[in-house]
Design a binder for these strands. Structure first.
Lengths: 340, 340
DNA sequence: GACTGAATGTAGATCGATCTACGTTCGCTT
DNA sequence: AAGCGAACGTAGATCGATCTACATTCAGTC
């Protein structure tokens, strides 16, 4: 039963008693098709269960496929972005294809896969990819980059306003009366690439602390793996002059910090925690994490929108920034006491 | 800058001063290539940044692409399965491509997209797709179905043992002393399709309740959307003779139920809750949900493994079942009192 | 030195679709 | 009735790769 050759346009043409070109016209809804021929061809298509091969199509023209590179499959914030992208593309003729990158993967294999498939455009999230490589890629095909604060001559950029978001978080903690505020973020490698959200958030943290004369309380804890986050938090709490608040780079890290705080019976006035992204579970009663919402759906929607514009012919670069908002929940409170 | 035609095998051949066939041989590592020619061609490939077009390739032979249909992008249990699949495929020559289905989407557009791309095989999760349609699809190309308890002549099946898992959950509650156990599950449409995990878990629930002489306490609450889950739980608690325990179809529903319980100040001895899937956050201290683990990674890994075997030529159908285990946490306890 | 066979390379058909260029038919005008 | 343009169909080139069949070269053998 396997290996029945797939139904091709030639089969349809033969069945309908017309030429291949005629079938092609019907499929593409092109000019020069009589109602009578249309119905004959459509009947044949229906009967044979014919579906045009994107592959064959893509050799010449567009594939009506847009690619989405995703490097952290299990990251709920990224999934939300993807979800928005899917919703935006649904009513169009295009199909979204996701290439997941291997966890600790090397290079840009996933992006290459999308290029090899001749996707008409790419949405790329990769914070790791080198800028010049991306620049070159974008000079050959439409590319929208998400969550990077680069400047580029070729690709469009969609990003949440991480500067505003991080300031919202810091201002919230400071206005509650916190001085000893630590920052919990990812491993070196992730935060040092200039312009990535982790790097920007870290920078704003450092800037705010310095501006407010709190430079001596600056503490940055790093967690390379999710499991590391708890240890990093413990280390913070065990340090001399421990923080009364933690601004975490994202909700996942924040929730791990919360885990440690709860373990030690610390309340929000002992240790306030702010996250970033407002993932669904941050709103759960048992977690109730104060966080920054940047509506990931919108990021995804904008990315697709800009990409389709590009495919449609726009040539000048465009950037789109979404405004984040602060969501106050129970994980933050006034500090119990604050000695300078 | 846009629209530079992509580099083709012909360009490489011209640059290297050899025939197209020769370049093709080098790429495919085929017989009949002198070291000297190999290096000349490889240099040309390198210099031009040539990448073979999967599309052109797929017209004739395999595309070295396998498709993964995903209908709930933001479902952490499914993401974990996908994650396992990605890990399993990483060391092979194949590339995994994900087609996300639109949320409330019609039909099987995502699967079609993968077929149209001429993927060499498909991993399908769709609990909605009609069996006969899948059967027909699988007669044309290798297909592995996840999380369905069908019998099939054409596709392979990978699934957690939902019967065993659901029994583990029920036995746990019963052995704690619970009699008034309710079941929280999805909307009608999802649970009625025979052989899907929700349907099987529901069935086991009904069976266990009946076997133990608890038929009079049977209560099934349904939530069509995630938001509905809280209302459904409230309704359960407001009903006459309310349950002392809830067996939820999955962790997402369980966590919503937990939310309601905590809101009302109910402890585990007032209302015990068991979930299913052991998503990452179920282990969070603030949630601490008793649940059934079915190691989604393994499901994903098996799916890819079986699919590659199929592509490699295996013809007889194979099923693979993973054994779930019970993870006891703080959301379950002995009931405070139990009147019959 | 002719013969054999392995090693190396090329020409050209082929895959499934698109698209241009062109031929035929038909209805309408003058 | 001739002329004309719109409507409808088709032939055949084309896209980028693969693969079969074949040509050429070269070393080794008798």
């Amino acid at each position: 039963m396997r290996g029945q050759r797939a139904v091709t346009i030639t089969d349809v043409a033969r069945t309908a008693g017309v030429s291949r070109a005629a079938v092609s016209k019907v499929i593409r809804d092109a000019y020069g098709v009589s109602p009578e021929m249309r119905s004959r061809v459509e009947a044949a298509i229906e009967r044979l269960g014919y579906r045009p091969s994107v592959a064959a199509r893509a050799i010449r023209g567009p594939s009506f496929t847009i690619g989405f590179e995703l490097h952290e499959i299990e990251n709920p914030a990224l999934n939300r972005i993807l979800s928005g992208a899917v919703a935006e593309i649904a009513p169009t003729d295009y199909q979204l294809i996701v290439a997941p990158a291997v966890a600790g993967g090397e290079g840009h294999r996933a992006i290459d896969a999308l290029v090899d498939l001749r996707a008409d455009g790419l949405v790329v999230v990769a914070p790791h990819a080198a800028s010049d490589w991306l620049e070159k890629l974008a000079s050959r095909m439409p590319v929208v980059l998400l969550s990077r604060h680069d400047r580029s001559e070729n690709y469009d950029i969609v990003t949440g306003d991480d500067v505003a978001g991080a300031r919202l978080a810091m201002h919230h903690l400071i206005s509650l009366g916190h001085h000893r505020i630590a920052h919990l973020t990812r491993g070196e490698e992730t935060t040092t690439r200039e312009g990535t959200p982790p790097a920007v958030r870290l920078e704003v943290y450092l800037d705010e602390m310095t501006q407010r004369g709190l430079a001596r309380h600056i503490k940055v804890a790093r967690a390379a793996t999710p499991g590391d986050a708890r240890r990093a938090t413990s280390d913070l709490l065990a340090s001399a002059n421990p923080p009364s608040a933690i601004f975490a780079m994202n909700d996942d890290l924040a929730m791990e910090a919360l885990h440690v705080a709860q373990e030690r019976g610390l309340s929000a006035s002992d240790l306030s925690i702010v996250g970033y992204d407002n993932v669904r579970l941050a709103g759960h009663r048992a977690i109730s994490l104060t966080t920054i919402d940047q509506s990931g759906d919108d990021l995804g929607r904008w990315a697709v929108r800009l990409l389709l514009e590009r495919i449609d012919g726009r040539t000048q670069v465009k950037r789109e920034t979404t405004q984040p908002s602060l969501i106050v929940r129970n994980s933050t409170d006034h500090p119990r006491s604050e000695q300078h």
